[in-house]
Design a protein around this nucleic acid. Structure first.
Length: 189
DNA sequence: GCAGAGATCAGCT
DNA sequence: GCTGATCTCTGCC
């Protein structure tokens, strides 16, 4: 079952936590790659100084202000892409969930070819996930609620006690918000 | 096993 | 110009 749009039309932080255990699917030339989401971060809007959308709409981040359930892909540090899914409740103008890490399920051989790396660190970071799944800016604005080249399916139930939260990575503001979520025995803390 | 530098680009204070 | 939601390689202990 593909997650429908109503799943993303809720608070960004809640969606980030509930995306843990869901299945991210990427189809390349008829080959199916998939993985379970094990680490996410929530980036909200004007209440979140670490978010791209904090200072209002720009050309780069306009996807975050658009309808929920679409992919937001952007370039960071000049060489790495980060993959987000737009999610927010109706009271907010912008918000997205960053997919930081997945655990490979299908198409592992193709991921290894893309990454030229061992299994243990194939997809345990935002830049690694996008490289293994061949996600780049051409996939910006994809509807992930429809079966296509990129979508998210219902996956495994994750018990509350297996979910950890911490401050987000690589930022200097908004450290009081513990909006990074991970599955304790899967993701590296 | 860990620390540090380098790669490289879009959007700003 | 600088500064990141980063990763990899190198060199040293």
């Amino acid at each position: 079952m593909i997650l429908d749009r109503s799943f993303y039309e809720r608070d960004t932080v809640l969606v980030a936590r509930e995306l843990l255990g869901k299945i991210l699917v990427r189809v390349i030339d008829g080959h199916k790659l998939s993985g379970m989401i094990v680490e996410t971060e929530a980036y909200r809007s004007s209440d979140d100084p670490a978010s791209h959308s904090y200072r209002g709409m720009r050309e780069r981040n306009k996807i975050m202000f658009g309808p929920v359930g679409y992919s937001y892909v952007y370039l960071i540090y000049g060489m790495y892409n980060c993959f987000n899914i737009v999610a927010k409740d109706k009271s907010r103008d912008a918000g997205a969930v960053l997919i930081r890490a997945i655990e490979p399920l299908e198409g592992i051989e193709i991921m290894r070819k893309n990454r030229n790396a061992s299994l243990s660190n194939l997809t345990n970071g935002p830049g690694k996930v996008t490289k293994a799944l061949m996600i780049d800016k051409s996939l910006n604005g994809i509807d992930v609620t429809k079966e296509g080249v990129l979508y998210v399916m219902n996956g495994y139930e994750v018990e509350q006690e297996r979910i950890g939260a911490s401050p987000r990575i690589g930022i200097r503001v908004g450290l009081d918000k513990h909006w990074r979520f991970f599955i304790k025995d899967k993701a590296v803390v």
